[in-house]
């Protein structure tokens, strides 16, 4: 177990260094000069040059990369070109809302997806199965922004039931909770379908297994056979799948945050890219990639905990 963990951790290190290096180099080939952007259209050549020196842009690339890593080690991701706020500070304030949104989306969509998928598998070949699968295929196909806009239009605007812009406050306050409902419903909505499909496949795989037949043969009620014997074994592939699909969910989170003006890291990233705020864009991409490496690592380890066969 420990060896497996150490191996995985070691594999993640070069990937992380790669992300850092690629992230840094990519920002070097940007067509716009950050010094000119920072200086504004009216600046003289001297001012641009001064800013270039101030930002360290006159140094050789390798030196800039070294300086960059050194700064990163100190938690310094630079300052926004647009408003001069430290990137790290901006990132720290947006990670919370993003995690909140993702957690709130997963907490209802995973159980619902597993339930739907199990029902479909048990009722395999019936009309019910076909309906569940059709709904889940529709769920996989619908653009996140469409779901979001429909909810805003009806629930938020027409019926005026829930707020649909921004975050009302911390999650423990009523306003915060209310503002979280529509975004979480939007983001979770696109996750139910994939989970249901995966669950159906996984449950179908184990339903034919000998131990399920044995459990049935000894007269256990169908519900117990399904939940205790079949579903429990099917959970291993489902858990892995969910872990790997967190990436897919992040894509949806970026869109969801943008539509609902949710102050998360995805919206920050998009805003930074659209306004050519390179330090900010790079910071968000770095944090998102780092988050990914971490999630994948956790999924690998979780997999080993769930399935003892992997450990050896």
């Amino acid at each position: 177990m420990l060896r497996h963990a150490a191996q995985r951790l070691l594999l993640a290190v070069p990937v992380l260094i790669g992300v850092l290096a690629v992230g840094f180099l990519l920002m070097q080939v940007v067509p716009t000069d950050p010094a000119i952007v920072r200086a504004g259209p009216m600046a003289t050549q001297d001012i641009v040059q001064a800013i270039r020196v101030q930002l360290g842009l006159d140094q050789p690339l390798i030196v800039q990369f070294g300086l960059y890593l050194l700064r990163l080690a100190h938690g310094d991701l630079g300052r926004s070109i647009i408003n001069n706020i430290p990137v790290a500070q901006e990132l720290a304030s947006t990670i919370g809302p993003t995690l909140e949104l993702m957690a709130a989306s997963l907490i209802w969509s995973i159980p619902l997806g597993i339930a739907l998928g199990t029902v479909a598998a048990v009722a395999r070949g019936t009309l019910l199965d076909r309906c569940v699968m059709l709904v889940s295929v529709a769920g996989v196909s619908v653009p996140v922004f469409f779901v979001g806009m429909l909810l805003i239009w009806f629930v938020g605007f027409r019926w005026g039931l829930l707020p649909f812009t921004g975050r009302g406050g911390p999650i423990w306050s009523l306003a915060g909770l209310r503002s979280l409902i529509l975004p979480a419903f939007t983001l979770g909505g696109v996750f139910v379908g994939p989970v249901a499909r995966m669950t159906r496949t996984a449950v179908l795989d184990v339903l034919d297994a000998d131990y399920v037949r044995t459990a049935r043969a000894k007269g256990l009620p169908a519900f117990i056979v399904i939940t205790r014997h079949a579903l429990r074994n099917a959970l291993i592939p489902i858990a892995t799948f969910v872990g790997l699909q967190i990436g897919f969910l992040l894509g949806g989170a970026v869109v969801t945050e943008t539509i609902f003006s949710w102050p998360g890291i995805g919206r920050l990233a998009v805003g930074a890219i659209l306004s050519n705020d390179f330090p900010m864009a790079q910071g968000t991409i770095l944090v998102l990639s780092g988050g990914f490496i971490l999630i994948n690592l956790c999924v690998d380890l979780l997999y080993a905990v769930l399935d003892p066969r992997v450990r050896t």
Binding site: M27, G251, A281, F292
Partner: peptide, 21 residues
């Protein structure tokens, strides 16, 4: 595997950041 571990949206963000949207 390394490429696969990053979601498409991240490539989208990174590439749009470099080459412009």
């Amino acid at each position: 595997d390394v490429l696969l571990s990053f979601p498409a949206i991240l490539f989208g963000l990174a590439i749009a950041a470099i080459f412009g949207p």
